[in-house]
Design a protein around this nucleic acid. Structure first.
Length: 787
RNA sequence: GCGCCAGUGGCGGAAUGGUAGACGCGCUGGUCUUAGGAACCAGUGGGCAACCGUGGGGGUUCGAGUCCCUCCUGGCGCACCA
């Protein structure tokens, strides 16, 4: 028996499931049911990503408690999921907000800490003023919080970090081995990790016992360096300038007209050029990133666009060191090095190699690799999350707790007023006497980023009742997840964090698993037309009715304007409620429609015609089997065999839309040929194949036809029957199709040519020209060539 | 700007280098009726035809929607990453 771990991304219990969930889970369910019929040992669990800020907001808004709100939502959504006929193993259910989950996460944190993979440091962090919490770099999109959209501020706080950067190289390299992941996701992760190979060069500061370490990918342009630029947050800036001055500069930098505008501030210090006997000026510049490298660059204006713009603005010399026309400046392509005593005449790669060797020899620099990836900041200043098992003493030191001191449970009695962290204000929970030292201590009041929760839930599913995080043998036996299905929006955050966790745990526990998800399938979004009134008020599709070619709103009879088709969203109100659809069309039509109109990895447009078409298909199949007689034709067996083969192939390749086409093709054939199967064995075969897609309908039909609900296993395919004995052979002349002839497979070329040449269509084409070549692709095509 | 993906009928979409448009929706004409959110039959890329047709232009090949080059358009991601 083969194990198949099939997993769909678990939902946040927001209150109700939406169509996106339905599509996601139906796709996964079809896979899981298919594999069960094949006799595989299928693991198909479901759980809840249950910590997170919305619960706190809801608690304030509705005067309830985050826990009560969350658990109620879970119950509600669970009953909704059950209506979808999902073959889930609810015994394995877990919720990350429950202590039987998060206490083991606290254990894992202790493991990570002891392995040197969790650490605390003062850091300039992204502060979301609306959520009043820190965000990871990955959670800041265009300078705004990923959830709130509020402009993120920079703040210095003492924070816990996970050392994901230790795995940067492995996380990057192992992407190559993930053959069953979408290329797109791998590309996004590669870009995020952002590996650059170059050099780190030391620049001495004139008259000071201090130096700068500058990373560059273009050490071949070092002779063209005419200035240094620092980020305003660079160490040396606060060393040489007052706080007031720095704030002044920050204000200056904030006043720019467009994002690319360069601004600088000339400092009083100068740097020595590492190779030339000259000094170059040091600026603070707005375009230098402080979280990349050391936050310092050398400017080579002749061969870098940004440096060029800056040099023009501040009248800094521009020295060409790569051969090019003046009009082409800044010249950033490859070329021969000039004006560089040690490198003249060399091509880029040779020059880079040579200069790095020289730097290393003279100890003024070395080869260096840089990553964009930063360590993962996991502290969140929120109540509704997993507590970090750490205590602080009054002298400022801290202690990570022992596993025997766990669990650290969240207190239920908190005052949620929306201002700051409720744990910080909960004195009786926070203040304790340390059992080891008998000293007064205070608990860590930050909780984990909820992405920590989802980084290992697929491991916990293997045994959600174990009194330790997981069982090593079980992990080795059942991971990786064979098919992981979810939205593309998690391409970086969740999937990268999970990969990191798997590798970190592998090293700590000596596991044999390198990657958590063998195959990743990203399903497309569901879209729908948008509708609004003339007052620009979005309205729901169900409020719209059609009258004499125009759209109107029910009740008010306002004129309705049809907008573009967009992703279903609450704000645009173009949503369809799963409960209503199930009520009106039933589960079978709903499941059919989720896979009918587009391939699962593409957008699915919700249309009334689409769901109605699925409903009609359900009715048609049910009606077909009501016909109480069996009449077969000689090729019926073959047709059915082909059907089984195609359905299987298309389920395995996630081409579920083609499964629907296969079903139509089969019933078109059966009805057109007036073939009725009723309660024959062939009906059993057909129904088994339909079962993964529409289990409800199949079980009902099976009961009616065979007085049983035991549908058995996936049919074994008789390959003999798949072989076509006669074919329609296309005949081409000069590569163009002229006609087709029906013939037996395995025909003899010279024999069939004789009959081909007798055909009028062929004779007319060839006339008396001389045939120079005949290409016979046996049983596929014949192509006749003449001069 | 860089990277990735994609461009096929009125629409969604099928096509291991070998009959382009499977299957569905929509539409047209017809049938039936318990008048339905039904069902059935016929048709549906363009053109009267020869023929022409997979974003444009080249190429490889006996043969290209498919492979190569180039350009255009759209989507997504990243984006002052030194």
């Amino acid at each position: 028996m083969q194990k198949k771990y099939i997993l769909e991304m678990f939902p946040y219990p927001s209150g109700n499931i939406h169509m996106g969930h339905v599509r996601n889970y139906v796709i996964g369910d079809i896979c899981a049911r298919y594999h069960k019929l094949k006799g595989d040992e299928v693991i198909h669990p479901m759980g809840w990503d249950a910590f997170g800020l919305p619960a706190e907001n809801a608690a304030i808004q509705f005067n309830t408690h985050p826990q009560d709100w969350t658990l109620l939502n879970i119950e509600n959504m669970k009953s909704q999921l059950k209506k979808l006929d999902l073959d889930l193993d609810w015994e394995k259910e877990l919720a990350t907000c429950k202590e039987d989950y998060y206490q083991y996460q606290q254990e894992l944190f202790i493991d990570l800490y002891e392995a040197g993979l969790a650490y605390k440091k003062d850091a300039l962090v992204n502060w979301d003023p609306e959520d009043q919490t820190v965000l990871a770099n990955e959670q800041v999109i265009d300078g705004k919080g990923w959830r709130t959209g509020a402009t993120v501020e920079q703040k210095v706080l003492s924070q816990w970090f996970f050392k994901i950067t230790k795995y940067a190289e492995e996380l990057l390299n192992d992407l190559d081995g993930l053959e069953l992941w979408p290329e797109k996701v791998k590309t996004m992760q590669r870009n995020w990790i952002g590996k650059s190979i170059g050099a780190e060069i030391r620049f001495k500061i004139s008259g000071e016992d201090d130096q700068l370490n500058i990373f560059t990918t273009r050490p071949d342009t070092i002779y063209g360096a005419t200035f240094i630029a620092l980020s305003v947050n660079h160490r040396l800036v606060s060393k040489f300038l007052t706080k007031e001055k720095i704030n002044e500069i920050k204000k200056l930098f904030a006043e720019i007209d467009n994002e690319k505008e360069k601004k600088g501030y000339l400092m009083d210090i100068k740097c020595k050029h590492p190779l030339l006997d000259k000094e170059i000026p040091v600026y603070i510049a707005n375009f230098v990133l402080d979280n990349y490298g050391e936050g310092a660059i050398f400017g080579c204006p002749a061969h870098d666009e940004r440096d060029y713009d800056f040099a023009i603005k501040y009248k800094i010399p521009i020295i060409k060191v790569i051969e090019c026309e003046d009009k082409d400046l800044p010249f950033t392509q490859n070329g021969r090095v000039i004006n560089s005593p040690l490198l003249n005449g060399l091509e880029k790669s040779e020059a880079i190699k040579k200069i790095i060797n020289y730097f290393e020899e003279k100890e003024i620099g070395n080869k260096s690799i840089n990553y964009k990836l930063r360590d993962w900041g996991v502290s969140r200043q929120r109540y509704w999350g997993c507590p970090i098992p750490v205590i602080y003493y009054e002298d400022g030191t801290f202690r990570v707790l022992d596993k025997t001191e766990l669990p650290i449970l969240l207190p239920y009695d908190v005052n949620l007023n929306g201002k700051g962290n409720a744990l910080l204000n909960h004195d009786s929970w926070r203040k304790i006497v340390c059992p080891k030292t008998n000293k007064i201590a205070y608990r860590e009041t930050d909780t984990f980023d909820t992405f920590v929760d989802s980084s290992w839930y697929y491991i916990r599913f293997l045994n959600n009742k174990l009194d330790k995080p997981f069982d090593i043998k079980q992990v080795n036996d059942y991971l990786p997840v064979d098919k992981y299905i979810g939205g593309i929006e998690h391409a970086i955050l969740h999937l990268l964090y999970s990969r990191f966790f798997m590798k970190a745990l592998r090293d700590i526990y000596n596991l044999k698993v390198n990657e958590p998800f063998k195959q990743l399938f990203t399903q497309g979004m569901i879209t729908h037309k948008t509708y609004r009134t003339q007052k620009d008020e979005w309205i729901m599709p169900r409020e719209v009715y059609l009258n004499e070619g125009s759209l109107f709103r029910e009740k008010t009879n306002e004129i309705v304007i049809e907008g573009p088709t967009e992703k279903m969203s609450k704000s645009k109100k173009n949503v369809i409620e799963p409960d209503e659809i199930l009520e009106n069309y039933g589960i079978d039509a709903t499941r059919f429609f989720m896979i009918s109109d587009s391939p699962p990895d593409r957008e699915l447009e919700w249309t009334d015609e689409g769901i109605q078409g699925s409903k009609n298909l359900v009715r048609r199949i049910e009606r077909y089997f009501k016909e109480n007689r069996t009449d077969m034709k000689h090729d019926t067996d073959k047709m059915i065999e082909k059907f089984v083969f195609n359905i299987e192939k298309n389920i395995l390749s996630f081409s579920l839309n083609k499964c629907v086409a296969d079903i139509y093709t089969l019933f078109n054939y059966l009805e057109k040929e007036k073939i009725y199967l009723h309660n024959s064995d062939i009906s059993k075969k057909i129904l088994v194949c339909l079962y993964p897609i529409v289990p409800n309908m199949v079980l009902n039909l099976y009961k009616q036809l065979f007085d049983s609900k035991n549908i058995g296993n996936w049919p074994k395919i008789n390959k003999e029957l798949l072989i076509e004995r006669s074919i329609n052979l296309p005949i081409q002349i000069q590569g163009k199709l002229i006609t087709t002839i029906n013939t037996k497979k395995g025909y003899k070329e010279n024999e069939i040519l004789k009959s081909i040449y007798k055909l009028d269509k062929i004779k007319n084409k060839i006339q008396d020209r001389k045939v120079t070549k005949v290409i016979n692709v046996q049983d596929k095509i014949i192509n006749i060539i003449f001069d």
